[in-house]
Amino acid sequence: MALRALTKVDNMLLSLDQALRAVVPHSNPSTRPLPVRDTSLPELTITESRHVAGLMRINHTGEVCAQGLYHGQAFTAKDEQVKAAMHHSALEEVDHLVWCETRLEELGSHPSVFTPLWYGLSFGLGAVAGAVSNEFSLGFVAETEAQVSEHLQDHIKQLPPQDLRTRDILAQMDVEELHHREMALDNGGHALPKPIKHGMRWMANRMKDVAYHL
C-alpha cells in the first residue's frame, strides 16, 4: 500500500512536534546510553556541583539551539537533499540533548528557563541561513559546530578532576560535533565572512552568560 504524500498541515504538525521535543525535558528517547566509563556518580562539593550544573545548562542550551538551527534550515532549504541532511543531523544530536538533561538531573539542577526563547531565536536564524543558499546554510552549520567544539573543550578544562562522568559526555559530544562540521564542509559548505562569524560568537557568549545562571 503506497504512503500518501504529506500535506502542509502534516508538515506543520511535524514541525510543532519537533519544536516541543526540543524544549520539553525528557520528551526524547535516547538511542544510546550515556558515553561514560564509570556508572557511579562523582563526589562533588556544593560549589563544584553548581559550577558543573551551570556548564551543563549551557551545553543543554547549545543543543536546544542546534535543534532550532537545523529545523529552521530544513524549513527553508532550497534542496531536498540539504533538507534531509538537516533533519538527519538534528536526529543525531537528540542524544546530546538527552545526555545533557540526564546529567543536569543527576546534579539536582534543571535546563535554562529560557529554553523556548533559545529555540525560537535559533529557528529564525536557521530559517534565514537556509533561505540564503545551500552553500551558506551548510557553512553556517560548519561554523556553528566549530564554535560549539570550542565551548565543549573549554568546559572540559573547567571540570573538577574527579568528574570523569561529565568529562566523558562532553568529550563524546565534541567528537560528534566536529564530525557534523566535516560533513557540512564535504557537502559544499562555504566559509562564512568574518563579520558573521564574530556576530555568531558574540551571540553565543551572551547566551552562555545567561544560561549558566538561568
Rank of each mutant, 00 (worst) to 15 (best):
Ile46Phe: 04
His155Phe: 10
Thr47Phe: 06
Val52Tyr: 09
Ile58Thr: 08
Met173His: 01
Leu69Pro: 07
His180Asp: 06
Ser133Phe: 03
Lys197Ile: 15
Leu159Ile: 12
Ser49Ala: 15
Pro195Glu: 11
Glu63Asn: 08
Val141Glu: 04
Pro29Phe: 04
Ile58Tyr: 02
Leu3Glu: 15
Arg181Pro: 03
Ala171Val: 07
Phe75Asp: 14
Ser137Glu: 06
Ala74Asn: 08
Arg206His: 12
Lys8Ser: 13
Ser89Thr: 12
Leu170His: 02
His26Ala: 13
Arg165Ser: 11
Ser149Ile: 01
Val113Met: 04
Thr76Val: 01
Met183Tyr: 01
Gly120Thr: 14
Ala5Leu: 10
Ala90Tyr: 00
Gln153Asn: 15
Ser133Met: 04
Glu80Cys: 00
Gln81Thr: 15
Val132Trp: 05
Glu92Leu: 07
Lys208Gln: 14
Leu3Tyr: 07
Gln67Asn: 14
Arg4Cys: 03
Ala84Glu: 14
Lys78Tyr: 02
Leu41Ala: 10
Ile196Arg: 02
Met183Arg: 12
Pro111Glu: 12
Thr76Glu: 09
Leu104Tyr: 06
Trp202Pro: 00
Asp154Thr: 09
Gln172Thr: 15
Gly68Pro: 05
Ala74Pro: 03
Ser137His: 07
Met86Lys: 00
Leu6Arg: 11
Thr144Glu: 11
Ala2Val: 11
Gly130Met: 06
Met56Gly: 01
His190Phe: 08
Ser49Cys: 08
Leu192Phe: 08
Leu44Gly: 12
Asn187Leu: 13
Asn134Arg: 14
Val98His: 03
Tyr212Trp: 12
Gln158Tyr: 00
Glu106Arg: 08
Ala74His: 01
Asn187Gln: 13
Ser40Met: 04
Ala171Asp: 14
Asn205Pro: 00
Leu91Lys: 04
Glu43Gly: 02
Leu91Cys: 01
Gly68Val: 03
His26Gln: 12
Leu20Ala: 10
Asn205Gly: 04
Val141Gly: 06
Asp209Tyr: 06
Glu93Trp: 01
Leu14Thr: 09
Gly139Glu: 11
Tyr119Leu: 09
Ser15Pro: 01
Thr47Ser: 12
Asp163Arg: 06
Gln158Ser: 13
Glu101Leu: 03
His190Leu: 11
His51Ile: 04
His71Phe: 00
Ile196Gln: 07
Ser112Trp: 02
Gln73Arg: 01
Val64Glu: 10
